[in-house]
């Protein structure tokens, strides 16, 4: 069992790295790129015996308490068998 957790800065927080990447893409001629947000991606292996609901609870707790700083970041996740 595996979980994928995506962490990004909140929309209300300025993302200087995303803005820099956006500017670089524009310079390269990608005129259709409207916005870039940079984030982090975690792949977390879980015990195979874990139920889907338990897995979701644990991942949510881990993401909330450790992987993100709730002042500036938000997360989303997927649990895969």
């Amino acid at each position: 069992m595996k979980a994928k957790v995506f962490v990004a800065l909140k929309r209300t927080v300025l993302d200087p790295q995303g803005k820099t990447i956006l500017a670089a893409l524009r310079d390269l001629g990608y005129a259709d790129v409207a916005d870039v947000r940079q984030g982090k991606f975690f792949e977390i292996g879980l015990s195979d015996g874990l139920g889907a609901e338990q897995a979701r609870q644990q991942i949510e707790r881990i993401a909330r308490d450790v992987l993100t700083n709730p002042v500036i970041e938000e997360f989303s996740y997927q649990v895969e068998p």
Binding site: L9, V13, L14, P16, Q17, T20, N69, V71, I72
Partner: peptide, 16 residues
């Protein structure tokens, strides 16, 4: 800040 003894958070410097 991370410990919560002070409020707020740090971002990358605006000039990176």
């Amino acid at each position: 800040l991370e410990t919560g003894l002070l409020p707020g958070a740090m971002l990358c410097n605006s000039n990176l």
